Amino acid sequence: MLLYKQKKNHALKGTRFLISITVLGSAGPIRFVVNEDELVASVIDHALKLYAREGRLPVLGSIIDNFMIYSPIAGTEALVPWETIGSTGGRNFFLCKKPQPEKAVDDEKASPMSRKGGGSWKSWFHKSRNHKISSH
């Protein structure tokens, strides 16, 4: 009877499995055991804490909203934070920072040094190229 109860409790706990998370720019993957019912956001949080505890480089920070997890099985789409990690069917993942949107700079607020010449790098390149061609 006692053996039956232990198995029943284990079934309620869910399946646990080892995952491997590779952090872009780091020396090697982080490995730890997760419950299949854990949310992706929780896995990101645990990975960031473990990464920091091990003193790995580059330093990532601890704000989970700044990161995404990708699964090679799922393709190029990042996993949704409120999905369960077991729903992906994968055991290997990639952790990377979310791309930060470029801050728009108003022309009024731009410093004189930042908009010197008033153009993009492409226009600068073409101007300098045309200048070299015409001076020869």
Rank of each mutant, 00 (worst) to 15 (best):
G25R: 07
V23K: 04
I69M: 15
A41V: 09
H136M: 13
I73K: 12
S111P: 07
E83A: 13
V80S: 11
G119S: 13
S120A: 08
V23C: 06
P112I: 05
V105R: 05
A78S: 14
I19K: 05
K5Q: 10
I21H: 01
E77N: 11
M113I: 14
K7G: 15
F67H: 03
V23S: 04
T15H: 10
T22D: 12
L48E: 02
G25L: 01
L12R: 12
V80R: 11
K13F: 10
K97R: 11
L18C: 05
L24Y: 06
A110D: 06
D37N: 09
N92K: 11
E54C: 02
V59L: 07
F17I: 04
D107L: 14
N9W: 10
F94C: 01
L60D: 06
S128E: 15
P29E: 09
D106H: 08
G118M: 06
H126T: 15
N92D: 08
A78D: 01
E36N: 11
A52Q: 09
F17T: 00
S87A: 14
L3Q: 14
L79D: 01
G14H: 07
K49D: 09
A110Q: 06
F67V: 00
N9C: 11
S26E: 02
S114I: 09
L18N: 07
K109D: 08
F94W: 07
K5S: 12
L48G: 01
N130G: 13
S26Q: 05
P58C: 04
Y70V: 06
P112K: 06
V40F: 04
F32S: 00
N35V: 02
N92L: 03
M1T: 14
I63M: 10
S42M: 04
N9H: 12
K103S: 06
L18I: 00
N130R: 13
K98M: 07
G118F: 05
L60P: 04
D107K: 08
G89D: 03
K98H: 07
P99Q: 12
A104M: 02
R53F: 08
K8M: 15
L3Y: 09
I133P: 05
A47L: 05
A74P: 02
L12G: 12
P29F: 06
E38Q: 10
G25A: 07
R115E: 08
A104Y: 03
I133Q: 14
R115V: 15
E54H: 09
V105Y: 03
L12E: 12
S134A: 10
T22W: 15
S120Q: 07
M68Q: 14
F32C: 02
L79H: 03
L95P: 01
Y70Q: 05
A41C: 12
R31M: 10
I19A: 04
V80M: 13
G117R: 00
K103P: 01
K49M: 11
S71H: 03
M113G: 12
